[in-house]
Structure formats: structure tokens, C-alpha cells
Amino acid sequence: MEFDFSPITDNWRFLLRGLELTVVLSLATMALATLLGLAVGLGRLYGPKWLRVVLGFYVDSMRAIPVLVVLVWTFFAFPILTGVTLPPFWAALAALTIHIAAFVSEIVRAGVTSVRPGQTRAALALGMSGAQLVRKIILPQAIVRILPAYGSILSVTIKDTAIATVIAVPELMRQTETLAAQTFRPIEVYTTTMIIFFLILFPVTRGVDAIYRRVAHLGQS
């Protein structure tokens, strides 16, 4: 068996463009999913009963439906239903955000409920309002506590962007497929991309863990 990595060295710009889009899609998804997930998580904790039921249904549904299915539905079925066509990138961003936000909301909820009730009592005894309690005391501690889980979600998000290839978003996975098909060198091309993903994802998870170890004490009441 002979390996020929020249398709990669010759076309590294092509892969790099894919990698750039993977990074952009990951970061945009994570930013939007964090905001949406925070809102959903807080809504489930402090919102009125009907809202909790609705949000709970949304979250559990996202836990039940594969991200591929959400992605394909958003890109192909949503336009038929509404008449609004989304370009692949935006469809992927919307679908991934809706999916990932559900998981963010779950860790927000877990983080908030894990803060000791004594902290609430201490803040109330000072005379804080409910909003001050959540903003000043509960959320800062919850955010520290959910860092490791947030790191895993970030890693899942980066991995899930590869699924956007099925709706032809030209991210790293898509570019890899194209290059492999054109050069007839699937082993070299796919293996290279696997290594690229590993080189991105491994430091991300390790980095988040390292940050967490430095700040963990700020969340331990």
C-alpha cells in the first residue's frame, strides 16, 4: 500500500477555507446557543408554569431528535412550510443553535440548582431582591460550576458542524469529501481531516478543563 499526501499539500488552501468556515460556524452557533440556552434555562427555573411546560417540551424534544434530522428539516422542509428559503450556512446555524441551546439550558439549570440554598438565604438576609440574587450571587457561581460541561458542549458543537455537510455547507467535512472524490485519495484526505479535527478538539477540551481548575474555587460555596 502506498500513500500519497500530495493531494493535501497541493490543496491545503481548499481545506483551510473549509476549516475557517468550521470555526466560524462553531463560534457563531456557540454564541447564539449560549444566549438562547441561558434564556431557556432561566425561563424553566423562574418562569410561569405554562412557560416551564413549553420549554421543557422543547428541551426534551431536542434530546430525542438527531441533529441531522433537525438540520435536514430546517433546510429542506422549513422553506416549503414558510416560503422562506435559508442558504445552507444560515440553515445550519439555525438548526445547530436550536439543537445545542437545549443542552446549554440543561446545564444552566443544573448549575443554578447546585448552588447551595444557604447562598440564597445569605443574599436575601442582606436584603437583595430576587433579580439581584440571581444576577450577583447565583449566576456567577453557576457559570463557574458548569464550565466543564460547557466545554463538552463546545466540543460537541464543533463535531456537529461536520454534519452540515449533508446540506452542502462548504465547511471542513464537505471540503474533505470533495477533495477525496476529486483526487481518489480518500484514505489520505479523510485521515488528514481526522487529525485536524483532533488537533482542534483535544486542546479545546483540555483548555476548558485547565481554566476550570484555576477558577473552580470561585464556584464552591
Partner: peptide, 11 residues
């Protein structure tokens, strides 16, 4: 744990 599953499937 650090490569996308869909890529692993293609691979």
C-alpha cells in the same frame, strides 16, 4: 472522543 462521528463513518 475528539473526532466527529460522521467523519469516522466516512473514514
Amino acid at each position: 472522543r475528539n473526532v466527529p462521528l460522521i467523519l469516522l463513518v466516512y473514514w
